[in-house]
Design a protein around this nucleic acid. Structure first.
Ligand SMILES: [Mn+2]
Ligand SMILES: [Mn+2]
Ligand SMILES: [Zn+2]
Ligand SMILES: [Zn+2]
Lengths: 156, 156
DNA sequence: AAACAATTTGCAATAATGTTGCAAGTTTTA
DNA sequence: TAAAACTTGCAACATTATTGCAAATTGTTT
């Protein structure tokens, strides 16, 4: 059937992902530029979180370092990506879910850092648990990073 | 009474803290140097966690930056201090409890970051809770940082 | 107490990472 | 298509981190 052929077509897949990408930029009132498209595309197809350096590598230095910094900053501000705390001095970024808005992220999910493949993965369905704090402390937001071995790496 | 006078004496207090300090270094088979003494002293009397920059400030540049880097690294390796994840790209360090050993930290307590005074505090008595992970993930260690307003800042 | 070995420090050079202003280029709007 | 709005790259600069090596300090032995 015709439709079947079209669905398997890689051009179709390309158009589909390009549409998703443009939607995200439009929704956030961002003008569509090569840099933003390419970087957002990277996030969309990356299984784990990305650091600034990863992005530079994967865009083959097509963009200036400054542009990458500014793009990441913009994406965070708009709630397109969020950042993940790390113990070494770096920042990791990952895609936000649909319900994040500019200046008001609300994905408080647990992050998993695999010590074998070194990937950091958003566990979107695992919510950060509440903890009872000592008297006087007023909690507002909590971050949690679990480290260990991920499913893919356990196999080997 | 004589003993009372001695206990209140600041010289006595000084000797006491110096003893504690030397104990820590000796126990970890580290030679006693001015830098290590001063930096460890800072941690002992600091209410919250310290960043590299804090240490440079508080030692009035008495030591080379490189020495501070190397000292912190050594202290972490020996289990004298541990580091705390952050979202900006920096590393925070705080004193470990007595039961930490070289290469085998086991203080998995929650950390609290106050958004007013900007201090990060070890909540030594609040244990990081376990979470149920998706199939395949093997947890090993977990970090948790709660952010909000601390007791001191709430008052105002 | 002095000499020796082991370790630590500071300096210099270098690398990596991040920030800012501004002119030129691109995207959006009209 | 032209003008307005916005984004980019470049250059200059600032901050943060790493490394090798000689000089200084510390711990150990005589
Ligand atoms: Mn995430
Ligand atoms: Mn702590
Ligand atoms: Zn893995
Ligand atoms: Zn506070």
């Amino acid at each position: 059937m015709g439709l079947q052929i079209i669905r398997d077509n890689s051009l179709y897949q390309f158009i589909l992902s390009m549409e998703k990408l443009l939607n995200i930029l439009k929704k956030n009132e961002l003008s569509v530029t090569d840099g933003r498209k390419k970087i957002l595309e990277l996030f969309l197809k990356s299984p784990g979180a990305l650091a600034h350096a990863d992005i530079e590598k994967n865009t083959a230095n097509a963009f200036d370092r400054v542009t990458v910094y500014r793009t990441l900053q913009t994406f965070v501000e708009k709630g397109i990506i969020h950042n993940i705390p790390t113990t070494d001095n770096s920042i990791l970024y990952a895609l936000c879910k649909d319900d994040c808005e500019a200046g008001h992220h609300h994905d408080n999910h647990v992050h998993f850092l695999c010590s074998k493949c070194n990937k950091t993965i958003c566990l979107d369905d695992v919510t950060v648990p509440e903890v009872k704090l000592p008297k006087g402390f007023m909690p507002n937001h909590a971050e949690m990073v679990v480290n260990g071995v991920c499913g893919d790496c356990k196999q080997k």
